[in-house]
């Protein structure tokens, strides 16, 4: 059972994600957070249990955005090794550069079709992100076709 965290303030996107996860042929358990603040609380609570396999992190969220979450995660001894995959609508260079520098493992621009969404999640779940080192910058953006 893979323990997955998703932080996204958009209800549609969360629904898409849950539906897509059902299509993935892997046993998973998902913990949803509606914003960054909730994510950090959830991480605090669940850290005693097996740590998350991966955190899917949206960037633009109210209260606490993805950048702040990433910063806190990478600076917390208990959390710093958890793989983080940025999951954003934007593919702005600024966002990509910043999150890579902050120590995210991969960057995915939210796909524009449901099939690609399923493929993206599948891809992330099969990647060996922990404890292997982070990819080089040129492989940081995970593009699924």
């Amino acid at each position: 059972m893979k323990n997955i965290f998703l932080a996204d303030d958009d209800a549609d996107d969360r629904d898409f994600f849950i539906d897509a996860l059902k299509e993935v042929n892997l046993p998973t358990d998902i913990t949803l957070s509606n914003n960054g603040l909730e994510l950090m609380k959830n991480l605090e609570m669940l850290i005693q249990h097996p740590p998350p396999h991966v955190i899917f992190l949206d960037l633009n969220m109210p209260f606490k955005d993805g950048f702040q979450c990433l910063e806190e995660i990478r600076n917390a001894p208990k959390l710093k090794d958890i793989p983080v995959v940025i999951f954003s609508t934007s593919a702005s260079d600024v966002y990509i550069d910043k999150t890579y520098e902050q120590g995210a493992n991969y960057y995915i621009q939210k796909p524009s079709s449901f099939k690609l969404l399923v493929k993206s999640i599948e891809k992330v779940l099969t990647l060996d992100m922990w404890p292997s080192p982070r990819p080089q910058k040129e492989n940081y953006i995970l593009s699924i076709t």
Partner: peptide, 9 residues
Amino acid sequence: QEPLRKIQI
């Protein structure tokens, strides 16, 4: 892009 992506999905 966000609403557009949703229309697409």
